[in-house]
Design a protein around this nucleic acid. Sequence first.
DNA 1: CTTATTTGCGAAAACGGTTTCGCAAATAAA
DNA 2: TTTATTTGCGAAACCGTTTTCGCAAATAAG
Lengths: 336, 336
Amino acid sequence: MKNINIKDLARELNLSVGTISKAFHDSYEISEDTKNRVLETARRLNYVPNPYASSLRGRRSKNIAVVIPEVADSFFSLAINGIESVAKEKGYHVLICLTHESFENEKTILQEFQGGRVDGVLMSVSRETSESAHILNLMGNGVPLVFFDRVLDEIDTAKITTDDFESGYKATEHLIQQGCDNIGFLGISECLSISNRRLEGYQKALNDYHVRYDSQQIINCTNDAVQNDILIRELLQGPNRPNGIVATVEKLTTPVYRASEALGLNIPADLKFVCFSNLETASILNPSLTTITQPAFEMGKIAATLLFKSLEKNDFNLSKESQVVPSRFIMRGSTI
Amino acid sequence: MKNINIKDLARELNLSVGTISKAFHDSYEISEDTKNRVLETARRLNYVPNPYASSLRGRRSKNIAVVIPEVADSFFSLAINGIESVAKEKGYHVLICLTHESFENEKTILQEFQGGRVDGVLMSVSRETSESAHILNLMGNGVPLVFFDRVLDEIDTAKITTDDFESGYKATEHLIQQGCDNIGFLGISECLSISNRRLEGYQKALNDYHVRYDSQQIINCTNDAVQNDILIRELLQGPNRPNGIVATVEKLTTPVYRASEALGLNIPADLKFVCFSNLETASILNPSLTTITQPAFEMGKIAATLLFKSLEKNDFNLSKESQVVPSRFIMRGSTI
DNA sequence: CTTATTTGCGAAAACGGTTTCGCAAATAAA
DNA sequence: TTTATTTGCGAAACCGTTTTCGCAAATAAG
């Protein structure tokens, strides 16, 4: 009934607990013979060490945290897969913590980690995050942290991002080449690095191609789906209706399609649409959706790999390890 | 730099560690005055107790695990949201463990939990799972476990499912009413309860409406996307091509749409298609997809609530708490 | 044959909390 | 005023591991 512990094993084998522990860690102090007996008995009795007891005495909890705004998003769920693939290999477990795009939640979560719940953190900041004190605090307490996708520039650690500027540029350039001369931009936050870099790429493209830039066409979407619907409808109903849209997050896909349909706008004839998205269904939408597709799995994998390097050797300097992984531009029916 | 612990607090306040601990737990032994001083100093010094140290002495780790086949699936990611919403309220953290539909992985994961890494488990079994020893083992060690969606019937604990039989029936009935007389069924596993119950609903509908049943039209999909593509193509190219399809999992959506397109089959004219799915994009697919949509968030929430009840009082009997939450049938363009 | 060295293990102190128990001082009852 | 009770706290055991250190027996070196 009750879980067996190292003491039970010791009693069973007529050895001291210290010896058992050392046998498990393949200590040179213990004879091969004893090691085998210990291992065999452990297997037989189904002994599994308590990870948290181990974590107390210097060793780690073998838990890492993934702090993200939401999980019902293809980018993040694929990134989790990437992270999990390396965590599993390292014998680590993954705590998923959702900020729901709230800075307050994010602070609370990181605060909790001060207590040693996790050995390291992988993080994509919330749309509201512009301060960095909570993160610096955690890192100051010796918890390594690696950013992926949504980063805070001012913090000195590894950041795994994609080429947001170039992607924003490419998306916009494509729309221009397809004949759009009035292009709306749907961002998610004014403080978010990725949103801003994509916006800069958009602006540069407009400028390079001498297309009119109108700040009215830059919409900052909220975290509330209903509110976003209203914003998008207003944009598409307004006197200055765009004939092209660049959207920076996957969850804006459905609202744009729905609003277009409701307003009798045809995609792509009346409105061309390109979205940053990892949706598997992009190719079977009506019309199929032109996307900037981020290397989500790979980004998660790289970020996790770096985190573990830093967990394995303390002198590993995360701040020199940032990487930019390029996204893929996939042309489909929504812009042709 | 280093995290401060209860000893540091004790030193700072000239109190014993025991007193500090009791103050935090609002013990009657400690005066209001002292409690306030402790709380205030803790806040000032940014003290966060080590959850794993607490977990050693009887208290819990405040971690629960969610064991699921994959995370890149709308049902599971929404269920996670539901689970997280109640975990957060209870001050718990959520470990996500992916089996990738492998029984071996599932066994390894549960085995690890014997050590006390988590206080309870929420689980949807893999497609390969038919034995229950690994689960009984864990539960036998005092770790409560609640199933959601994919359950193992023979295990005596709470199971939160949806009305799989009725849904399978309704989907099939709908196709029949829309004129299909040759309906394929795409399952994912022969051992999986949900797949089988949906299949039974399908069979009953065929029978009730005197539509020919042909076991050749029952395809058991694999966990390999490429292989699934082949199976689906074979079905749609065969001499006995169905004019309707019921698919039991979301990830079969894209393959069916793609295969139809590749083979020049029009949905819904040549092939009507209904899928168990929580895809947000179902309504904007080409054509929009008729779905059986499960109450994913709610199922996660109910399952988690039950798990916490059992964590809170030991005498709580999970085995009497199973619930069936109905799915919604949403008719759209793929069957009209 | 004595003196080093190695080998294999046990005892005990940590790790950071919680909890039981005891005890002195303060208060209440007699 | 004496005795009983309550209040507020400290000492120490404990949770399940890891790790340091010491020590006896076995082996090697001189």
